[in-house]
Simulated assay, not measured.
Amino acid sequence: MQFIAGDIGGTNGHVALVRAANDGSGAIETLAYRVYSCAAFGSLAALLQAFIDAEVGTPVSHCVLACAGQVMGDEVVNDNLAWPIRPDALRATLGLTEVALLNDFEALAYAIEGPLAASGRHLCGPAARGPGPSLVVGPGTGLGAAAYVPGVPHAAIFTTEAGQMDFAPHSLREREVLAWLAPDGGYVPVEHIVSGPGLLTVYEALCALDGEAPVLATPKAVTLAAEAQADRHAVEAVELFCAALGSFTGNLAMTTMPTGGVFLAGGFLSSIFDLLRRSAFEERFLHGRSVRALLAQVPVWVTEHGCHGVQGAARWYTRHRAPSGATTLAGAAA
């Protein structure tokens, strides 16, 4: 059976027409694949309809969508999505029999069983995976994470909202940035620092702290200026971002000891791989004292997000597919 699989983030929507391989391997065959800018569409239904019109030649009645955020009741709860996502409305608008939803990083964790684990560039730690759990972490429009725990007959996948954890500054400069973000104190989620928009926020904060007006207006402009060493605040912003990402990822690693590897996912990190490799990421990831020896056994790779979320969503669907006509709403996984 052919079905639609999508990975819907705050910036881009990755959509594919897929089917499970007939050889019992669990592999997913991709028949068509496109990436859309979410801002170009007034609704998710419009985005999916554009894909159906362009790529789907025969009627398809089943769809699975990996979405940034968590499924609660009949909607996805997330501040970074371009529009509300409600499966009932999608079924009615697109004439679908079934719409299944799961968290986007849950889908990426399922993709570890596919090509994701072999597609990354090694950043630090051992060069080979161990037998333990794995983590997928990714800063994009927001900041997501999920854990993959090997098991028989299937691995267990655990979603998180780790990006909503409180930001914990490490350096004096990070404390100054935090104070600029919350001058009266209060809650500042780590994704306000460790994400694409967070990088721009850090850049603006550093300019303000030094009494200068920011001249760069997008995260991409900040990373390009940092790579060219063309703006000192851009350079410092990327360095602070990478260091904070190291601390955050190390904190998550201490909860699961992922000797199976940490996969830093997303085109954003891939685009700054050289800056990340030269940064304080590894030092901050390792933390200190006795835990340093433990975290040194954890390999870390950077991998393109690409179609991995779509592949993972399709793998999840073939394992959890509900009876025809039902709507599957996925929370923390099994």
Rank of each mutant, 00 (worst) to 15 (best):
P323E: 14
S25H: 06
R292V: 00
R173E: 13
F241I: 13
P84T: 09
G246Q: 07
E106F: 00
F158P: 00
Q311Y: 02
G114A: 15
A243T: 12
G125D: 08
G198W: 10
P87K: 07
F285N: 08
M165C: 11
D166L: 12
A127T: 15
A156T: 14
C63F: 11
V76M: 05
L81V: 10
G185Y: 10
Q297N: 10
L181M: 15
K220R: 15
R289L: 13
S43K: 11
P59G: 04
T318D: 06
A208L: 05
A265L: 01
M254I: 02
V215D: 00
L101G: 08
G120N: 07
V300H: 07
Y110W: 15
G95D: 09
M72K: 14
E29H: 03
L135H: 01
S195H: 09
Q229W: 03
G306L: 04
R289N: 12
A296F: 00
R321N: 01
A39E: 03
M1E: 12
G57M: 10
E29I: 10
V35E: 11
A230I: 11
W180E: 13
I272K: 02
A208V: 09
Q49G: 02
H308P: 09
L101K: 03
D74Q: 13
G246N: 06
A205H: 07
Q70S: 12
F268N: 04
V76D: 01
Y317W: 15
T327Q: 10
V71W: 07
H192I: 01
P115D: 15
L94R: 04
